[in-house]
């Protein structure tokens, strides 16, 4: 029998509340995750947008780095948006923060420029039907290199890779939680349903 997957949202910093609200609009069961115990009961985890160095520092203070790594290695779905993408990366162009090194990607922080260079655009997202997705890029990163196991799901006209998937791991450079369009969350929820079945 199908049950509703419990989708954890890492709630240390950033826009976790917006992720939770979109999940609720899909009748999913979001859970704010601040401790290893809260993570243990989740079927999937979202690392939200925010400030990646702050989030990495808080992950260390609250001893979440190991539990999140184990969570990903257990095959449960993990989705990083913006700062979350930076944290999922194996390596960064910049010297900090220390990422989780889960996805075989090289990520460039603030790749589009400073705050004034933030922008919105429509993108085609492989695996999401119904037309382009409106995407919000805020001091966003991009993926500069992908390993052989990584599938590119979306790229901009200039070639910048902004959405990738590697098995149970999903990363987007933009903020689907900041638009009312629930299709990206529905995509991840389907990953969670398959994994929880």
């Amino acid at each position: 029998m199908k049950r509703t997957p419990v989708v954890g949202v890492l709630a240390l910093q950033g826009d976790f509340a917006e992720h939770a609200a979109l999940l609720r609009s899909l009748d999913a069961a979001p859970r704010e995750v601040r401790t290893a115990a809260q993570l243990a009961g989740a079927d999937a985890l979202i690392i939200p947008g925010g400030e990646s160095t702050t989030m990495a520092t808080l992950m260390d203070i609250f001893d979440l780095r190991g539990p999140i790594t184990d969570f990903a290695r257990s095959g449960r779905p993990l989705w990083g948006t913006c700062a979350g993408m930076i944290l999922l990366a194996d390596r960064l162009v910049e010297p900090a923060p220390e990422p989780l090194r889960l996805m075989d990607i090289l990520v460039h922080r603030n790749a589009f420029g400073r705050q004034v260079d933030s922008f919105e655009t429509d993108i085609d997202f492989a695996g999401i039907d119904g037309g382009p997705l409106h995407a919000v890029f805020i001091r966003a990163p991009w993926v500069a290199e992908v390993g052989p196991q990584v599938e590119v799901l979306a790229a901009l006209d200039n070639g910048a890779v902004v959405a990738v998937r590697q098995a149970n791991l999903l990363a987007t450079a933009f903020h689907p939680e900041l638009t009312p369009d629930p299709r990206a969350h529905a995509y991840f929820l389907e990953m969670a349903r398959v994994a929880a079945a």
């Binding site: 709630a11 601040r34 401790t35 808080l58 203070i61 609250f62």
Partner: peptide, 12 residues
Amino acid sequence: RAVVKAVTHYND
């Protein structure tokens, strides 16, 4: 540091 911890775990 203590304020940061209390803000993160404000319901605990």
